[in-house]
Design a protein around this nucleic acid. Structure first.
Length: 216
DNA sequence: TAGTAGCG
DNA sequence: CTAT
């Protein structure tokens, strides 16, 4: 297994570097949890979590919804961003201020100034759910970083290279951790190992992940 | 290949 | 890897 550098940020939070422009900010989201958790219910009330189908015709194990001007969707025709929830037939819920602030502050802490996401994909993992290695490449430009927030059950994040067959580093992600990657690392393959059922004190047997992007 | 199964 |  590949070794990873561990060091301290000025803010004293542990930070794990995954690449020249990729890192995990340990516990960065913890101060936001109280604000963010209730907002998930509000979002799901308008745009419920659903299991989307991939172009290959398989149903994703991860349930998802979105908030913000653009939302990531998948069906038999492919992956894309839409301004309207295809299930609900109405625009995706507005991105809560606390979400945007969290994303922007995390990006800044990772070295990316002025990150203004227009898309927040909200993923819900239950035991066994996984995301196989993929690249985020449906966004208009790759200048903006990806900001990924973990809440609830822990997961093993896979961070690979620029080719699918490149070896992937396994990174544990816990409640409150934020992973950020951009710049030369923006298009690196990544994924999540099948989730183990180790219930979280606050969220029970689930993991919620926010993925913030500048999609438009 | 943001999946999965089956074969070798 | 290949069909799906």
């Amino acid at each position: 297994m590949q070794s990873l550098e561990l060091f301290e940020t000025p803010a004293q939070d542990p930070c794990q570097r995954l690449g020249p422009a990729a890192m995990v900010l340990r516990g960065f989201a913890l101060p936001y949890v109280q604000q963010v958790l209730p907002a998930i219910e509000v979002i799901a009330a308008t745009s419920p979590f659903r299991h989307m189908v991939t172009p290959g015709g398989f149903t994703m194990s991860v349930a998802l919804t979105n908030c913000g001007a653009l939302g990531w969707t998948s069906d038999r025709r492919g992956y894309r961003y839409t301004s309207v929830d295809p299930d609900a037939g109405v625009p995706w819920p507005v991105m809560p201020e606390a979400f945007a602030r969290l994303a922007s502050q995390a990006a800044k802490a990772a070295g990316f100034e002025h990150f203004e996401p227009d898309a927040c994909l909200v993923n819900r993992y239950t035991p066994g759910a996984r995301l196989s290695l993929h690249q985020d490449k449906n966004e208009r430009d790759y200048d903006a970083p990806i900001v990924s927030v973990s809440l609830g059950m822990s997961a093993t994040f896979l961070f690979g290279g620029h080719a699918r067959t490149d070896p992937a580093v396994k990174v544990p992600l816990h409640h409150g951790d934020v992973a950020v990657w951009g710049g030369v690392d923006r298009l690196r393959y990544h994924g999540v190992m099948p989730l183990k059922d180790e219930p979280h004190a606050l969220l029970g047997s689930q993991r919620i992940n926010f993925t913030f992007r500048k999609a438009g």
